[in-house]
Amino acid sequence: MAIHAHVGCHEKVTWNPRLGRRRRIARQRAERIRRRRRDNRLSAAGPTDTGRVRWAELLAASLPGLAALLALLFTWIQVTQAGKELAISERGQITSRFNAAVSNLGAASADVRLGGIYALEQIMRDSAPDQPAVVSVLSAYARHNAPVRVEDARKAPVLPGDEPRPLSADLQAVMTVLGNRRPDRDRGVQIDLSRTALPGLELSGYPGLFPLRGVDLREADLRPCLRSAVSRC
């Protein structure tokens, strides 16, 4: 159905309803296409944005735990380093004590020598790894300060009525320290008292256990020991 209208003086315009309907359909179709394209862009960009947000959230949530882990690692490193420094310091102190005690063994004063002997005993108690060195030093001290002389070796055995001369205080202290040690810390080191003169050695402080068991006593002068504890020598 055509609609005629008069415009101006004598200009005639004809309106076609079918043409108007086609234009509306074309506009609607173009609008649907634009919406579809927009939706496609949003759907394509959506997961990426969501993934980025999730990564950001995960990173933000893990930051406190990561900081705590780094702090724990740093603390562990500090504790380990402090432990190493403490061990080095203690090792240095023991070395200084050991050197001072050995120096005292050569002093002219008997009291200073006794102090060195008992200082070595304390080192032996405080540091098990140093016991073999202490045992070797004290054994060498006894051999050096009480060697068996030729004239002593030729003497007749001590008779039951004879009283031996008491052992010097420092040598008796050496034997006491060696007798009171823990043999399980010797690490295979044997006490060497070969050719050592120890007459008058007091053994009464070790009931039931001879302190020189397992000691190298070859050619040593232990005549009182042979008299009082021959079954245990």
Score class of each variant (00 low, 15 high):
residue 180 N to Y: 11
residue 11 E to N: 05
residue 137 V to M: 01
residue 201 L to H: 06
residue 128 A to T: 15
residue 192 D to N: 09
residue 158 V to S: 12
residue 141 Y to T: 01
residue 61 A to V: 05
residue 213 R to W: 09
residue 34 R to D: 06
residue 156 A to V: 12
residue 45 A to V: 01
residue 167 L to F: 03
residue 66 L to W: 15
residue 191 I to Q: 09
residue 142 A to V: 00
residue 190 Q to V: 15
residue 66 L to Q: 14
residue 148 V to Y: 02
residue 153 A to K: 14
residue 91 R to I: 12
residue 49 D to Y: 14
residue 85 E to R: 15
residue 25 I to C: 08
residue 212 L to W: 04
residue 68 A to K: 10
residue 82 A to Q: 05
residue 19 L to Q: 06
residue 80 T to W: 11
residue 16 N to C: 08
residue 108 A to C: 04
residue 58 L to C: 11
residue 85 E to G: 10
residue 197 A to I: 08
residue 186 D to C: 04
residue 232 R to A: 04
residue 92 G to Y: 13
residue 82 A to C: 05
residue 57 E to F: 15
residue 190 Q to Y: 11
residue 217 L to M: 05
residue 13 V to W: 14
residue 22 R to W: 06
residue 153 A to M: 06
residue 119 A to P: 03
residue 174 V to L: 01
residue 216 D to S: 13
residue 213 R to L: 07
residue 146 A to Q: 07
residue 114 L to T: 04
residue 179 G to D: 03
residue 199 P to S: 03
residue 73 L to R: 13
residue 120 L to W: 00
residue 180 N to Q: 12
residue 39 D to T: 13
residue 32 R to T: 13
residue 194 S to Y: 00
residue 145 N to Q: 06
residue 202 E to Q: 15
residue 159 L to S: 09
residue 164 P to T: 05
residue 63 L to R: 09
residue 98 F to N: 01
residue 124 M to C: 01
residue 154 R to P: 06
residue 213 R to Y: 12
residue 205 G to W: 12
residue 153 A to D: 10
residue 62 S to A: 15
residue 123 I to P: 02
residue 116 G to K: 02
residue 175 M to P: 01
residue 34 R to V: 06
residue 226 L to W: 03
residue 215 V to C: 09
residue 91 R to M: 15
residue 217 L to N: 01
residue 169 A to G: 00
residue 38 R to C: 14
residue 176 T to K: 15
residue 78 Q to I: 06
residue 4 H to G: 04
residue 5 A to E: 13
residue 11 E to I: 13
residue 38 R to P: 12
residue 156 A to L: 11
residue 186 D to L: 04
residue 204 S to Q: 14
residue 111 D to E: 09
residue 193 L to Q: 03
residue 145 N to Y: 12
residue 112 V to F: 00
residue 83 G to F: 10
residue 39 D to W: 13
residue 113 R to C: 06
residue 119 A to E: 10
residue 219 E to S: 14
residue 158 V to P: 11
residue 93 Q to K: 12
residue 160 P to A: 15
residue 168 S to C: 11
residue 177 V to D: 02
residue 52 R to F: 12
residue 30 A to L: 05
residue 31 E to I: 10
residue 87 A to N: 00
residue 188 G to F: 06
residue 150 V to Q: 04
residue 63 L to T: 05
residue 30 A to Y: 06
residue 227 R to V: 04
residue 133 A to Y: 02
residue 89 S to W: 15
residue 206 Y to C: 09
residue 162 D to T: 08
residue 181 R to F: 02
residue 163 E to I: 01
residue 206 Y to R: 09
residue 122 Q to C: 01
residue 48 T to I: 10
residue 185 R to G: 03
residue 44 A to E: 14
residue 60 A to D: 15
residue 112 V to S: 01
residue 35 R to D: 10
residue 164 P to K: 04
residue 185 R to H: 03
residue 46 G to W: 08
residue 159 L to Q: 09
residue 135 V to T: 06
residue 207 P to A: 00
